[in-house]
Amino acid sequence: MKQIFEALEKDARLTPKQISTMTGISAAEVEKTIKKAEKDRAILKYKTVIDWAKLGEEQVWALVEVKVVPQRDVGFDAIAERIYRFPQARSVYLASGTYDLAILVAGKTMQDIAVFVSEKLAPLDTVQGTVTHFILKKYKEDGEILEGGEEIKRLPVTP
């Protein structure tokens, strides 16, 4: 069954029939497995990794470190929930180390992100402090090298 998900993770557009050919598992079985995983939210969504810069679209990303005071009974979960409901927060992680929450924030401009941090994030009750790192350049996204990736330099015919 693992092969089904490995195939889908690499290429979300594969049809159950294609996956069936690739894995030797029957198409009906593949379809059933995928449906169930979607229902259980083991498959969260199907997405496309896009290099927006290449399309001429401005997009700004920042990694925001957030230090918070954990709360009785709910620990970090309550504050994390307050934060992850904002659509600007694209990914939210609890991290070990000198800060507590790591948040990937996306916006159209630096101003967007600055406003989000200063007006939405920083004023939250239990937030003690934030450090915003603007992303200057993306080299690798979701396992894909954005530019200057390695091409295969094989000769077309070999023994």
């Binding site: 094989r154 000769l155 077309p156 015919v157 070999t158």
Partner: peptide
Amino acid sequence: GIRKFFDLLSSMEGVISLGVGEPDFI
């Protein structure tokens, strides 16, 4: 016999080669 095709092939564009004998992984 494999080498024979090499010359013909290298003068063409858009060829998909199933004629290799090595991995396509780096």
